[in-house]
Design a protein around this nucleic acid. Sequence first.
DNA 1: CTGGGAAAGTTGGCCGGACAAGGACCGGTT
DNA 2: AACCGGTCCTTGTCCGGCCAACTTTCCCAG
Lengths: 153, 153
Amino acid sequence: MREHATERAAPLSARPVSHAILRAARLYKALAGRLLRESGPRPGQERVLMVLWDQGPQRQVDLVTAVDSDAPAMTRGISRMGKAGLVRRRPSPTDGCEVIVEATEASLALRDKVDEAWAELERLTTTSLSAARQREILADLTLLESVLTRADS
Amino acid sequence: MREHATERAAPLSARPVSHAILRAARLYKALAGRLLRESGPRPGQERVLMVLWDQGPQRQVDLVTAVDSDAPAMTRGISRMGKAGLVRRRPSPTDGCEVIVEATEASLALRDKVDEAWAELERLTTTSLSAARQREILADLTLLESVLTRADS
DNA sequence: CTGGGAAAGTTGGCCGGACAAGGACCGGTT
DNA sequence: AACCGGTCCTTGTCCGGCCAACTTTCCCAG
């Protein structure tokens, strides 16, 4: 044992919060992808579709913030979803450099599967964490987010 | 039951826990990458180096679990780090199909910068969340992880 | 001794996140 | 009218996570 004054950063195993968050995020993505793998949209696309189904046509930049993604990734993702017939692009009538994205009728066929998958995620989340616990975690993570975002300046 | 039961999954904005976790994970990665951007290792490599510095030479599979990554990603990442002179590969003497990875002397030059960056992350985390809060979050996320992992079977 | 399973590593491919750079378009200013 | 800054989108490039398939090696049961 190297006494107590390690000037070195703690090892990963002792940095639990950030590590746990990264692990949990990976598990969420992996599980969502797995639930939707069979005859559903490609992993990651379901989040965009949910926004479009729920809130109607959106500009790409709004989709980016809604699913917390990235403009280039959104451009390419939308393009792939367009090829798959899930989504349509339309130029904005008011601003020529905006692009409006809307879900196609065909995409509605996937909606039940997506809902099922997210209901399963919801079920897993609520069975492991009480509603009060979820609120606490949410408050903590929101605070953490604001600090991390501000430090990102 | 189409009555009061929500037939549709809640919109993203109403699924805060998973969404918040994904956002926080992205912020952590982005901030860690930004802190190390200048004359540090490439984002993502610092986690591998920390394990090697702290725990000595490791098999690739152990690095994978330590940084919660992926075998193919680790193979390619180690390869890139090898080209950058940060790391060395060595076949295991006991098992011919294992590969032992160790940090080079040259990599130690980066250690201070990595420690600084993680200290900053630590500072941001502790200033926004008390130690007790961190323990609670950790416990909750660990529970959530176990449930998600089990459901992933 | 041999066959077959298990584990570690590698490679190819797909996709999303990140950064950089650039084009298209709008608005207000001069 | 021409310029300018800002916003939105796009393309190029790199890297990591994920899946699938394969090779190598080990080890154990038959």
